[in-house]
Amino acid sequence: MAKITVREAISQALWEEMEADPKVFIIGEEVGVWGGTYAVTKGFYDHFGPKRVKDTPIAEAAIVGGAIGAALTGLRPVAELMTINFAFSAMEHIVNEAAKLHYMFNGQFVLPLVIRTVGGGGRQLGATHSQTPDAIFAHFPGLKVVAPGSAADAKGLLKAAIRSDDPVMFIEHATLYQLRGEVPEGDYLIPIGKSVIQRPGKHVTIVTYSKMLDISQKAADQLAADGVEAEIVDLRTLRPLDMEPILESVKKTNRVVIVEEGWKSFGVGAEVASRIYEEAFDDLDAPIQRVAQLEVPLPYNQNLEQLALPKPEWVVRAVHEVL
């Protein structure tokens, strides 16, 4: 199996789906001539041409709204929002249009739409460019929200998202693009809406996703040195949320730590913890611990920024709390 970066995995998924289906096209800021600000679509413009790799004005409502309209005509647009922070400028079209139209018009409108975007902090971009607001988008019925943490999942989930007839918010992480991982060759798909055990263990369940999968793996390595075997469940999809592997794992470990990069308040961890309390309270031997970003807009200064972001040590500490 080839070891490739998350960037290459996403790029391959896009390329393969565009080669396979002439209805798939890319629309976004700097996706064409520039090659993508994260170089994901490098070479696409020369190969597929301006019709299928559309450089837009800096106008997020037009990007998402335009993609919605094009999807309604039977095309399969992959809209790119340069960062998830810019998604707020298209909030109306993501949550009030894309998430609603199929339902509101009684199934008449079909939106095979993917919104690819990038979140995450840790790059000294300041408060407006460093957020992880994934939970906000997962709040809305009608949207599917996917956030892979590995190269294989990035490729398989993006291909599934492009083939899905539902609007999918596909959230990448800015500091994961260089991460390498094994990705099966060929037409590799991962179903949307399936959590998965990424690392087996028996003493504690760590529930996480996206960049925090990497952080949790590092924590698990440290814990393993102390004889603690952590089982890591990767959500991969936030909506629809698949609790099955989590509940199975909790039955075995009876202890849970949830790790997310976004703020703790009203976040992914809050939702997952609530569901565990509702559905598996009797399996728990300790209160659930949550690891999350400190409740502060991320500052520019590197030292200050790093103080606010979850790191493996925090996860280790949280695991010791529940053991």
Binding site: A61, A62, V64, I68, G69, T73, E92, E97
Partner: peptide
């Protein structure tokens, strides 16, 4: 029902017609 929000969608419908 959201004032102005259907205009980008209209542009998108036209993108679809132009594309196809």
């Amino acid at each position: 029902a959201i004032v102005g929000a259907h205009l980008p969608i209209a542009a998108g419908l036209a993108i679809g017609d132009q594309y196809q």
